[in-house]
Design a protein around this nucleic acid. Structure first.
Length: 283
DNA sequence: AAAGTAACCTGCCCGC
DNA sequence: TGCGGGCAGGTTACTT
């Protein structure tokens, strides 16, 4: 589920609430999510740590802790992180489709507020890295698409030496970090590029469209709080829906008419992922 | 070596 | 009403 805009929305929400707070207790209901350390060591190191900073790299959260460790979280397909400050209420999130039995790890702060890791499908992963270390899979991520180093020149250079189709290119986290299936579909539709086009076949002007749309769409999606689809499985840290879904052009809209040319939208599979496109607009 | 497929999970929706 | 199949925002490991 969560792509860069959703992760960033959750990050911003948590940042307002938990910076400087000290973890006093950890409740672990599902230890399988913790990847690199024993449950015992996980909780004993976290207890007493406070949250100094929350960073994001691609779809990864990096919670920088004082005095020393890094808590890394990847949400997989269905993970969310909720913040709650209502200790009397037992429900994770009343009136939502988020179920309490999928709360897997709860971090309690000294003021009785808490951060809840909830994940129906449990594809999410959590690491606790000692002494400010980071992860190889984070080190090998590609460009941060909204960062200053991601210039058009560097993007075009990468495209020219890539033999795969442009959709796979955009979704490969080693090229650009943070784009998933929804945003890849939307970027290519608004750029008028067929998802199966070979990356190295794209002209300067086509590449420019993709570059600008990548940045614009991700920025706009963050402003709108990310995408909550009809199943409402994505909510931000405060339990709020994102509204980028209302501006989605093609993702999930097979058979509906193209908003630009009225032709029916088509669906194909690329790398086993559903890919939506307009046969009239995307060449 | 690139490309395809299965696996990890739960839940929902659809057709029969 | 229920059962089976297919599908879902991601990633990785194993096959050909």
């Amino acid at each position: 589920m969560p792509e860069l805009p959703e992760v960033e929305t959750i990050r911003r929400g948590l940042e307002k609430e938990v910076i400087g707070k000290r973890i006093v207790k950890i409740q672990i209901k599902n230890y399988l999510l913790i990847k690199n350390i024993s449950v015992h060591e996980f909780s004993s190191r976290l207890k007493g740590s406070s949250i100094k900073n929350i960073k994001r790299r691609g779809k990864f959260f990096i919670f920088v802790l004082a005095p020393r460790d890094n808590l890394i979280i990847h949400l997989g397909m269905s993970g969310i992180i909720l913040y709650r400050d209502d200790p009397e209420k037992t429900k994770a999130l009343p009136f939502s489709k988020i179920k309490e039995n999928h709360n897997h790890i709860i971090f309690f702060f000294e003021d009785n507020s808490r951060m809840i890791y909830n994940d129906v499908r449990r594809f999410g992963k959590i690491w606790l890295l000692k002494n400010g270390k980071t992860l190889p899979c984070i080190e090998s991520l590609g460009f941060e698409p909204l960062g200053y180093k991601f210039t058009f020149e560097s993007f075009y250079g990468l495209l020219q030496k890539n033999k795969k189709n442009i959709k796979s290119f955009l979704m490969n986290q080693k090229n650009i970090a943070g784009i998933g299936n929804i945003y890849a579909n939307e970027i290519l539709f608004l750029s008028g590029i067929h998802p199966l086009r070979k990356s190295n076949s794209l002209t300067f002007n086509e590449a420019k469209k993709i570059y600008l749309n990548t940045r614009n769409i991700l920025r706009q999606a963050i402003e709108l709080g990310g995408t909550t689809m009809n199943d409402e499985s994505y909510l931000d840290s405060g339990g709020k829906k994102g509204s980028f879904g209302e501006t989605i052009m093609v993702y999930g809209k097979k058979g509906r008419n193209c908003p630009l040319c009225e032709k029916p939208l088509e669906i194909i599979k690329i790398d086993n992922r559903s890919t939506f496109l307009c046969p009239g607009c995307q060449k």
